[in-house]
């Protein structure tokens, strides 16, 4: 099992190295200020909700704080592991789905924002003004979609591993679609408007993103099976 996880993780890193990070993380200053503020405003309620659920969890079980701290640090280190350069790279938060299944989608919003914050401030990757937009795609839309799928499939009686695969797949695809949409809204195409622009932004990275989603699905499934055993 351990070997399988190592193998899948390797394939994941490999696929990820072909993704243009700009597509997944919107750069500092890239969005016009109106859109930057808009996405912040949209994200904040989710953030506050997540913080409330976390607070409840920590009050019930103070040891959870340590675990949450480590989950965040681990997600960050994993995202910075691949390329040893000044800025680091690989933007996709591995384990969104796993975290959502473990901590719930609202808690993942907070954790995801913390990871994005550290990527912006320690790796100089992403940004502060665009943190709202990035957080919405990666830490709100992804986890909540994943959670919906997870609950639905669980109710349908699907096995944990298979469920994890679909959950992770959907989290990945939704994140990527929302990012493309955000860029399209900010920069609609002259000829075809938002829709054409969306296809353009989405089209560039479609191939790597779908294979990445499949790979992350398999990886998450393997990790869930491993965690169940231990």
């Amino acid at each position: 099992m351990n070997k399988l996880i190592i193998l899948l993780l390797a394939v994941f890193f490999w696929l990820n190295s072909y993704t243009e990070p700009a597509a997944m993380h919107i750069m500092e200053g890239f969005l016009p200020i109106g859109w930057a503020v808009f996405w912040w405003i949209v994200t904040i309620p989710f953030f506050l909700w997540g913080l409330k659920t976390l607070k409840k969890a920590v009050d019930e079980n103070p040891e959870a704080k340590l675990m949450i701290g480590f989950a965040g640090a681990f997600a960050f280190v994993l995202s910075a592991l691949k390329i040893p350069s000044v800025t680091g790279s690989s933007s996709h938060p591995v384990g969104t789905a796993l975290g959502t299944m473990m901590f719930g989608p609202a808690a993942m919003t907070v954790l995801g924002m913390i990871v994005l914050l550290f990527q912006a401030l320690l790796l100089a990757h992403g940004g502060i003004t665009t943190l709202g937009a990035n957080a919405f795609s990666m830490a709100v839309a992804g986890p909540f979609a994943a959670y919906a799928v997870y609950r639905m499939l669980k109710k349908a009686g699907m096995k944990a591993g298979t469920n994890a695969f679909f959950t992770a797949f959907v989290a990945n695809i939704v994140t990527y679609t929302v990012t493309s949409l955000q860029l399209a809204l900010a920069f609609p195409s002259e000829t075809g408007g938002v829709y054409a622009s969306f296809l353009e932004f989405a089209g560039i990275f479609a191939v790597t993103q779908v294979s990445l989603a499949v790979c992350e699905g398999l990886l998450t499934a393997a990790a869930v099976n491993w965690l169940e055993k231990h």
Binding site: L51, V58, K65, G69, G72, F76, V77, V110, I114, F118
Partner: peptide
């Protein structure tokens, strides 16, 4: 709580 988690994450990273 957010700040506490950020401080922890910083150290653990």
């Amino acid at each position: 709580l957010f700040i506490e988690i950020v401080a922890l994450v910083y150290r653990f990273i």
